[in-house]
Amino acid sequence: MLHTVNKSPFQNSALENCLRLARDGDVILLLEDGVYAAAVGTVKSSLIEQAVRRHAVYAIEADLKARGLDKLIKQVHIASYGDFVDLVEKHPVHAWL
C-alpha cells in the first residue's frame, strides 16, 4: 500500500497516525506540507528516521524546493511527479489528509 501524507508533522498527527497503521514494506510518500517531516534536525525528524527502517519513503521534489528544504534525512528518496504517478499505478493508495 502507498500512504500519502500532505500535512506538516508539527501541525497535526497525520504522519504519526499513518506510521502507526502502516505495515512493514508499505510505501510512504510525503507531499505538500508533509515534506517538512523529511528535514533533519527538527523535533519531528525521528518519525521518518525510524520509518525508513520499515518503509521506502519518498518526498516530492517540487514541494521540497518550494519550502527551501535541502538538508534531508538521507534514506528519503526524492520523487518527481512522474515517480508519484508510477507509485500510484503500482499500489493501492491511502491518503492521510
Binding site: 517538512y36 521534489e61 514541494d63 524546493k65 518550494a66 519550502r67 527551501g68
Partner: peptide
C-alpha cells in the same frame, strides 16, 4: 517556516 531561506516555488 515562511522565513526559511531558499524557497523556490517555480516548480509548483
Amino acid at each position: 517556516l515562511a522565513l526559511q531561506a531558499g524557497q523556490d516555488t517555480k516548480d509548483l
